[in-house]
Structures are given as structure tokens and as C-alpha cells.
Write a protein that binds this DNA or RNA. Sequence first.
RNA 1: GGCGACGUGGCCAAGUGGUAAGGCGAGGGUCUGCAAAACCCUUAUUCGCCGGUUCGAAUCCGGCCGUCGCCUCCA
Length: 472
Amino acid sequence: MNSLKLFNSLGRCLQEFEPLEPGHIRLYTCGPTVYDRIHIGNLRTFVFEDLLRRTLRFFGYRVTQAMNLTDVEDKIIAAALEADVDIGTFTAPHVASFFDDLTTLRIERVEHYPRATEHVAEMIAMIERLLTAGYAYCADDCVFFRIGADEDYGRLSGIDLDQVRRGERVRSDEYDKEDARDFVLWKGAKEGEPAWPSPWGPGRPGWHIECSAMSQKYLGKTFDIHCGGVDNLFPHHENEIAQSESANCCPLARYWLHSEHLTVDGEKMSKSLGNCYTLGDLLDRGLSARSIRYLLASVHYRQQLDFTFDKLAAADRALKRIDDMRFRLAHEVEKEIDPGPLDRAAGRFENAFATALADDLNTAGALGAVFTFVHTVNGFIDQGLPPGGRTRVHAALDRADQVLAVLDTGDWAGAAESGGGLSDVEIDALVAARSEARATRDFAAADRIRDQLSEAGVVVEDAPGGSRWKRG
RNA sequence: GGCGACGUGGCCAAGUGGUAAGGCGAGGGUCUGCAAAACCCUUAUUCGCCGGUUCGAAUCCGGCCGUCGCCUCCA
């Protein structure tokens, strides 16, 4: 079996992966803040995490994964107040659309989706431990983490807080903190804000503490892998480490994986630039979810991925190459020849695919292996397909698709289903009529039928064994 | 200012010491009644630039140029 290597942000190096418990991996992935529809940048990270989860299982591990839903936070509170509804009512549709997007892009459901609002007790308990140990202090109805008490602070991001430029947000901070760099664990409630009772008065948890408390509850004090977008490396993940490790006196996660950002037309996505796409925006333009998943999977997760419509079109064409091979394969008659060469080619593909994945999720390399195999199979189709060849090819592709989840043509949202309303039976009849016309050399009639099918989006191929068709 | 990433053919993108995967595009061919579709072939003596290490570098080291990201609640 290939040994899996992953790039650990903690230490910034490629490391051989070893789970804490043999055969079982505990994985925490930072989830969405449910105050709006998520955008394709979020989805890039979620697709990466899905590829990771599937890869771990591909290599035989059992995976227990938790992804948090941040359902209480300043923007949510402000928006709910604006809409004059409670935060649960406000976030519900965004939670629903988040899960819809996962389904559309074939991102697997994970074992736990803990919500911040349902784990306030666990967060309070952790904050109390931090207070007792001297890592936190109360001020202004709030509780803050005392960064000065944590000697290790900055280990993950490599940040030197003395060097950090004092930004606007730090200067304008209205709280009465001991040190401007300290971050909030618990926020005292202001008039009209949602609040939970606590030893420090009514309030709500700070952002970072939810991940510390919930990861501990579902995965234990120390777990295997923690993922998120690069932007979370500092301060979010740094602060999670500070909280959890100060409270528990043991490492939080052994491997930290961060996915790079997605840009659009070379620029960071932002609402002011108007380039902030949701999955729905793309589907509305007639783009297929399958091409989107392919594009998101086709660039290594630690590389910035520049999203353009041209690339989506190229992704569409690339997938078509795979589909066309399957189409040819389905129509090919197997011959009584030696199945060895095809079986060995499939084995080489399986090996190359697994090797690429084991190398820090080299999905681009893995897809390269897929296309090399497609080319090889096309050769077998031309030269002669051995008995069992079709099954062998499908077995190899299906195995790869357990990770990629884009190779099958099944039901994909946004995939233009052409055929102009013609049923398969109707198309079969028209193709048969055309074949008859051709047999009697009535090419005018045959071409009329071909034009009719073509207008309906059906492509007729005249092959040596007879005509066949596909929805183009 | 601090920290980090990247720069490979027309476009995209793998490749971290042994002589450039793969996809898109383009050109040619095969097949065909003609087409279309598909398939096949071709398409980087070279990896931003300049030095260095080495028998050997896209890959390691130094410098320069360029692009991008993060720097307290943005995946």
C-alpha cells in the first residue's frame, strides 16, 4: 500500500501520515458561517476536504469527521436584527442552502455538524478552565484570552506578534483589554442581542472557542487532522491552538492542512467587484455542477486556483473525453483475445492513481493518470477488446471515482439534457429509419432525419458496425 | 514593514537531482455516400532572469525581476 504523505502547515513540511489510532482518523474541518449563501471559494475548500476524506477512505482508513456550523456571530446578529427575526430563523435557510450545495457538488455528509448555539455549555466549561489556569481574564463583561501567558503562541502561523503592524481594527477596538492582541473568548451581551447565561453574565461565545470546544467533544482533546482555508491559519487556528492546548495541556491536532484561495479572473472574490459567485449563480448560467467539481479538483489544493469561465468550458471538454471513451466502450464487441495486456494497463493506472493521491493529494497527477488510461483504452477499443475488458475498465474507473466523484455521468445538476424532448425510443426509431434510407441510398431522406436529430441535440455516429447515437 | 506562496508550450497544469505527465486549443490524418462525432499523430532541446553547487538542476543554494495571498473574527 502507498504510504500517504501530507503537507503539515505546522512545521511547513511534507510528512508521512500516521493516525493516532491505527486505521481510524479523526478529522476536523472548519465549516461555514451561515449568514449568507456560501460562494465557490468556500466550496473549493469543502471540495478539497471531501477529496481528503475520500482519499483517507480510499487508503482503507475509517474516518470520523466534524464540521462546525457557525450560527451565532456579529454579522448574523446584525442581519437578524435588521430582518427582525431571531438568529435561528435567520440562519435556517442558509443552513439548508449549504447542505443543498454539498449535495449538488457530491460532497459527502460527514459524521457531525455541530452548531455553535448548541454547544455553549461546552464552551463555557473550557473558558472556565482557562480562567482557572490563568490563561484568561474578565474585563468589561467579557472574557479574554491572555496571549502573553501562552509562550507557544504563533507556532502555527510563524507570526511574531511584536512585529505585527497595529492595524485599524486593533486600534479601534473598544474593549478594555490588558493587551491589544488578546482575543475574546466570551462577549457580554448588549441590549437586544441574543444571549446565554454564564458565570460572567449574559453573553455569547467568541468565534474561536466554538471550534476548540466542539472538536474536543466529537474528536477528543487531540485528534489527527485539522483543515481550513489559508485565511484561517491566522488568527483563527492559531487561537484555537492557544485555547485548546492551554486548557488541555496536550496538542490539539497533529496535522494542519490549509487549502489555498480561489480567485476569479485573477482577483480575490469580493462583493464590490461583483465576482462573488455562488453555486446557484453558476448553475443559472447553464454550467454543470460536474464541471465545477472537476475544475475545483483539478488544481492542487495548495495552489491558488484562478476561476474563469474558459476553464470551466475546458473542464467540460475534458470530461467529455472520458464520456466518449465510455460510449465507445459500451458499443464495442469483446473478442476472443488475451486479456492480459488490458488487465496490466488497468493495473498500471490504478497504481499511478493511488501514488499521485498518496503524494499530498496530487489530484492533478491523479487526473493525468485517468487520461493516460483513457488513451490506452481507446487503443484497445481500436485494436480489439478482450473478454471481460469492459468490466475491467469500469472497475478501475469506479475505484478512482470513489475519490474524484466526477467520472460517472449520472444525475448532475445543470447538465444540459439534450434530446429536444425526444425519448430514447423515438430517437432509436429515427436512427433506424435513417439507416434504412441509407441502405437504399436515399441520402436526401437520410440527411433530413439526421438534421432533425441534430436540431434536437442528438449526434448520430456512423460506425462500421452500424449507426449509433448520443445526446450531444 | 512582517510572514508566506508562486512564475513550466497559445491557455491551464503535474513534475523537488537523472534528462519535460495530462487537459484545453491549434495543425495534419483515419473513418464516411457526404458530413458530423470520435479516434490517432504532431505541437517546450526547454522550465521568469543572472550566477553558483553537481558527472548531471525545471528541481538544491545566492541574487534580481514579476505576480499573488495573509498580517485579529474572510474558505
